[in-house]
């Protein structure tokens, strides 16, 4: 047992400000989300009726909800995978200590300072079909690229911006992991005649498994929420709902459609989903990673 100070209530007083903030701005809103999901709130107040599971029945039977949920899942899988594979490749390259490595290790972190909304504004411009970089191609093949009317184009644009913005964190974590791999291991494998690809597959990747799992888990939650700024600045959920992920739908329903109960219900569902992801992380991945180590 490490030595410690005496004082039964001192830590409580020290934690109190934080506890109050967390209670007021975390637990009460979360509680309210669940409570509202069982009532029908009038937008202007003055009446809320307890309706049991009716909101859930409505949301869960709404094809638009499932459409948004499906798109969220697709974005999560593709977005996260790309947002990890790209930094992973870059980290493997930077780990080689070639002349560019030094610059790369600085510059690749820059997106951390650029807000999702800012990069959304910039990418919306760069991918503008008439004045952006695709304009010449569009000139040759009219209608080839138009994220304003083609849902697939819009989704691709969203993914690219998401990957761009997600590089710094994953790059830093994965590179730190790679650099902790003892050189002797890779050298030994090289002398055994293992090709570079084999060395990556058989030595480096297993050694950074903990970091890979970590980035995957964090990236999953991240992709569910961080897409909002990109969607709001680039596509507003369009065209035709092609980029309407759940987090954006909740915002639309709650703040543009005055459907407080519906938005609260969907928030509650999304919260449960994210909590399940977290539980999965703690129960399954932790064990697996420890085993790998």
């Amino acid at each position: 047992m490490p030595p410690s100070f005496a004082g039964r209530w001192t830590p409580f007083w020290l934690s109190l400000p934080m506890l109050l903030i967390v209670a007021l701005f975390f637990y009460i809103p979360v509680y309210l989300s669940f409570w509202w999901s069982f009532t029908l709130e009038r937008p202007f107040g003055g009446g809320s009726e307890f309706v049991g599971f009716q909101n859930y029945a409505r949301v869960l039977s709404d094809p638009i909800f499932w459409d948004a949920a499906w798109r969220t899942l697709v974005f999560m899988v593709f977005g996260s995978t790309l947002a990890i594979i790209v930094p992973l490749i870059l980290a493997l390259a930077a780990d080689r200590m070639v002349p560019l490595s030094h610059t790369a290790r600085n510059v690749l972190i820059w997106p951390k300072g650029i807000a999702g909304a800012s990069i959304g504004v910039v990418f919306a411009f760069i991918f503008n079909p008439f004045v952006g970089i695709m304009a010449p191609l569009n000139g040759l093949f009219p209608g080839l690229w138009n994220p304003g009317s083609d849902g697939t184009d819009a989704f691709i644009m969203l993914l690219i911006a998401h990957v761009w913005n997600g590089i710094p964190f994953n790059f830093v974590i994965l590179l730190a992991g790679l650099q902790a791999v003892p050189r002797s291991l890779t050298q030994a494998a090289a002398i055994d005649g293992a090709s570079p690809w084999r060395r990556i597959r058989d030595v480096q990747l297993p050694m950074i498994a903990p970091q890979l799992f970590l980035t995957f888990v964090l990236e999953f939650t991240e992709s569910v929420v961080s897409a909002f700024a990109l969607i709001d600045t680039m596509t507003q959920g369009g065209p035709g709902g092609a980029t309407r992920l759940l987090v954006y739908k909740i915002y639309q329903d709650g703040f543009k459609g005055y459907d407080l109960s519906g938005a609260a219900t969907q928030s509650a569902i999304l919260m449960v989903f994210v909590l399940c992801l977290a539980a999965f992380q703690f129960l399954y991945l932790e064990k697996k990673v420890r085993y790998e180590r």
Binding site: S149, G237, G238, P239, G240, Q252, K256, G257, Y258, D259
Partner: peptide
């Protein structure tokens, strides 16, 4: 909830 309907209309007709 007509504001919400306008969004629905835009989305469906866009498609």
């Amino acid at each position: 909830f007509y504001v919400q309907f306008r969004d629905i209309f835009k989305e469906e007709t866009q498609r």
